[in-house]
Design a protein around this nucleic acid. Structure first.
Lengths: 225, 225
DNA sequence: CTGTGTATTGGTACTCCGTACCTTATAGAC
DNA sequence: GTCTATAAGGTACGGAGTACCAATACACAG
């Protein structure tokens, strides 16, 4: 009852045709009919597959938002900092996996103001999702809601900082730059007034040593890689 | 050689007509011709005054950006924290002065996704302007560019936090909430690893005591109000 | 194989946005 | 008065997005 492979193929052909034409003649000079024709389908089919011309460039945000939400929902109070970092990493990995497609989108969005607005709208959705969880987690701190909004903005900004460096080809190791960026961003996440280098870990005494090790390892890895 | 009063009146009538119609029948159900007709002008005149239907809602961003840029350009190394706070306050004051108009825009933008995207695009412009200055000021710190981007995001986020509370009628003293929000946001602005409660002040020895007092007073005010 | 219901696609027509271009009118300059 | 410049209205056009209808492909029961 999901999508059939044939349907995915049609969408993929449309995306490929769109990127080709956008790079050939620019976004504004390309009509929806041009894209449809090159993909070998009718104009109607194009608008059925993508609600608008912009949507060809920005697909599947909803899916990413869902994965972030899942990751944050699974966090325990002791692992929240890690969950924030990992949820953000989900987005980074998505773009890294896209490879050249992500770079083509970056070039395109950078040259078309209308698409820029659309992209920042998508980014804002991530930020609001993070803020929703963080407000819940930090609501009893002084200025908790404000600090939650700030941390959400920092996470998204740190992500974009690393992503854009990678998109521009300014880094060959985005993952470790991302680790460092997350460390800086998460300086804001200090539930109590502890030293930045300390950590609070809560473990069930009934847990096996192996389980404890499994939970601790990623925390330690993210501290000193 | 600037605008004539008559021209301003026409634009004002169009803005008023647009807000009326948007609240009556909604944004999408209102055509550009409807607005022009109610304002008593032709459709062509509407598009000459505002480049698009969205522009009726978001005017004069360029002017605000210019004032922020001026304020930041005038900062000396010792007064940069204050300049950041004051530049952000320029934006807040602008919306406070608009009064009910700002609230009408807020209601409208909240209900029309297309306008939301447009608004976040404008916000992003502020953020990028702050980031441009901050990158210059912080470029020799470790992770300076990243920290500059984060602080820019924090300033904009803190501003929006207070502004939205005021727009929703959740505060009667936005200015002092803004002071507190700026204090929290500027925690990120620690050029060296000093205690958060300390400050670095550089003064010319040739300055008169009165001039020193004038420069110090706002800094002290923003520390402990 | 045939008939029937269903889902996907293509086609046509429509509204509206935004732009280009042309015409008109109003207001000074002389 | 005429001449010219500037603001305004009118018309026409291309393209986005929507609604609706026709055609075709497909599944499956009989």
């Amino acid at each position: 009852m999901n999508e059939k492979p044939r349907s995915a193929t049609t969408k993929d052909r449309l995306v490929a045709a769109a990127y080709e034409l956008f790079e050939e003649r620019g976004f504004d000079a390309t009509t929806a009919e041009d894209i449809a024709r090159r993909a070998g389908v009718g104009r109607t089919t194009f608008f059925r597959a993508f609600g608008s011309k912009d949507d060809v460039i920005f697909p599947e945000h909803d899916q990413l938002l869902g994965r972030i939400d899942e990751r944050l929902a699974a966090a325990t109070p002791a692992t929240r900092a890690l969950a924030l970092s990992e949820a953000t990493r989900v987005v980074l990995r998505h773009y890294l996996d896209e490879g050249e497609l992500a770079r083509a989108r970056y070039r395109l969005v950078g040259s078309v103001p209308a698409l820029r607005a659309r992209e920042t709208g998508g980014i804002q959705q991530y930020q609001r999702l993070f803020a929703r969880w963080l407000r819940e987690w930090m609501s009893d701190l002084p200025d908790g809601h404000l600090r939650a909004d700030l941390l959400a903005a920092d996470l998204v900004t740190a992500h974009n900082y690393v992503l854009r460096r990678w998109l521009r080809g300014q880094t060959s190791d985005p993952e470790s730059e991302f680790d460092q960026a997350m460390r800086v961003a998460l300086e804001r996440y200090q539930p109590s007034g502890l030293e930045p280098s300390s950590a609070v870990v809560v473990l069930r005494t009934s847990a096996t040593p192996a389980a404890i090790q499994a939970q601790l390892q990623p925390l330690l890895d993210s501290e000193e890689p």
